[in-house]
Design a binder for these strands. Structure first.
Lengths: 109, 109
DNA sequence: TTTATTCATTGCAATATTACGATTAATAGT
DNA sequence: ACTATTAATCGTAATATTGCAATGAATAAA
């Protein structure tokens, strides 16, 4: 019914899915890549860089911030976003463990 | 509008998002883990293993198959699913490249 | 042929997501 | 105080997703 039955899955499974879900939109992928490219923090010219309206970008930023992948500092009227390196590393660990399942396995059919 | 503007993003960004999106549901994560755990192929006792109705599982399997992460062979009345190792590797390459962005970067804010 | 089993498909309801216009809140500059 | 700028929030429309009951198609067993 449009709602996910998270209760029947393990915490790990839900965590993997949660990380994957937030990466599951090209705008959020693009935002993260741009923040990494600039290395230093970057302000809201993400709206110019990516071709979406300001409220839409703001919404995507909110989701990324909610999961902890980015953080934002207010600087006057503008807000400077950057990658949260610690949480990124945590995500990488969780996702890599999942993606590397194949290393322990033999061939199947 | 519920619809993603894929045109304004690069192929790579869309590809990453597409892979992530399919991993963005715990049922599909669980299915993939189960298929890996059994190593050999496995039939549709996924319905018993995971606590969702058969049509729901069938739908998730369809999405996984559509992206090429699994393949299914008909065996009499049952269907045997297994991981598509080649395509899994391709996904791992794409996702790892994205997740490893941090390795080339200095600190920011 | 009939029956049972297994799985895909269809149709539907409930909810979620994506996107944007309009508005609001906050600060900076005049 | 007034204005401009920036970004969050609200409200809304369109579409997507999740989940299941009912049904259908295909094969196996009797």
């Amino acid at each position: 019914m449009g709602i996910t039955k998270t209760e029947i899955f393990t915490d790990k499974q839900n965590q993997i899915a949660q990380y994957a879900k937030v990466l599951g939109h090209p705008a959020r992928v693009a935002i993260l890549q741009y923040l990494y490219k600039l290395n230093a923090c970057v302000c809201g010219d993400l709206v110019d860089e990516i071709g979406l309206a300001q409220p839409t970008i703001s919404q995507h930023l909110k989701e990324l911030k909610h999961l902890g992948l980015i953080k934002g500092n207010v600087e006057g009227t503008s807000v400077c976003y950057c990658i949260d390196a610690d949480n990124w590393k945590k995500m990488k660990t969780v996702m890599s463990e999942f993606l590397d399942q194949d290393l322990n396995q033999k061939d199947c059919c």
